[in-house]
């Protein structure tokens, strides 16, 4: 199999973010999407800690310690930015005002269930953050992740085995091997990453891929 690089995967997701969208990018891999949005599109990024209009990182050594995003990275403001408090920030998320959220995941199921906040390792304190609020309120939920776990076991399943973040919330899954839509009938193939064939991708997937 020929997996996409992280940068190519980020660019693939970015291609599907329309001009004028309000977008929330989850912690980890999704944060790289903003660097790959095609020129000429204005995308406005929301970060749940209280800013809409997240700008690029500040120059080295010129950061403001009270200007961070949800991943706790230093940021600047983009033109048209605004600050607000947590109740307003989550009103934007739950209230359906954000257009698209791109999230990482441990597991995604063919019924659109998402597991991305806790595993079955009980020695690990659970940490949910804002993921449950995002998935119930944002109309389009994209998952961006590796197709399989490090040990090769599938992350794309008929049913999630880890505790759920939300039920039936995922619209589309972008992985380093394929793009899959979640439909009423299950996962439907949108495209394979260049250099991969369906049989190999299906073998790495724990649910049936419709074509």
């Amino acid at each position: 199999m020929t997996p996409l690089s992280n940068a190519d995967l980020a660019a693939r997701v970015a291609r599907d973010i329309p001009d004028g969208s309000y977008v929330n990018l989850g912690i980890g891999m999704p944060t790289h999407v903003s660097g790959h949005v095609p020129d000429g599109r204005e995308v406005i990024y929301h970060s749940e800690n209280g800013i809409i209009g997240v700008g690029p990182p500040p120059p080295e050594g010129r950061h403001d310690p009270e200007m961070i995003d949800a991943s706790k990275r230093f940021i600047t403001t983009a033109p048209g930015a605004a600050f607000f408090d947590h109740p307003d920030s989550f009103a934007m998320m739950r209230g359906g005002h954000i257009d698209i959220a791109v999230l990482g995941a441990y597991q995604v199921a063919e019924n659109g269930d998402l597991a991305n906040w806790a595993t079955d390792d009980e020695s690990f304190p659970p940490a949910v953050g804002g993921a449950m609020d995002l998935v119930v309120g944002v109309p389009t939920i994209y998952v961006m992740m590796r197709h399989v776990n490090r040990d090769g076991s599938p992350k794309i399943l008929e049913r999630c085995t880890y505790p759920l973040t939300g039920l039936g919330v995922v619209n589309r899954v972008y992985t380093d091997l394929a793009v899959l839509d979640v439909t009423a009938d299950g996962f439907r193939l949108v495209e394979l990453a260049p250099g991969n064939d369906l049989a190999a991708v299906q073998a790495a997937t724990g649910a049936r891929i419709l074509t």
Partner: peptide, 24 residues
């Protein structure tokens, strides 16, 4: 507690509400 629920539970206390329903 989910982050938005945490924020709203805090706000609800300050606003004198007895609670709220959320899909979260």
């Amino acid at each position: 507690v989910p982050q938005g629920t945490l924020a709203e539970r805090i706000r609800a206390a300050g606003a004198g509400l007895g609670g709220f329903f959320t899909p979260t």
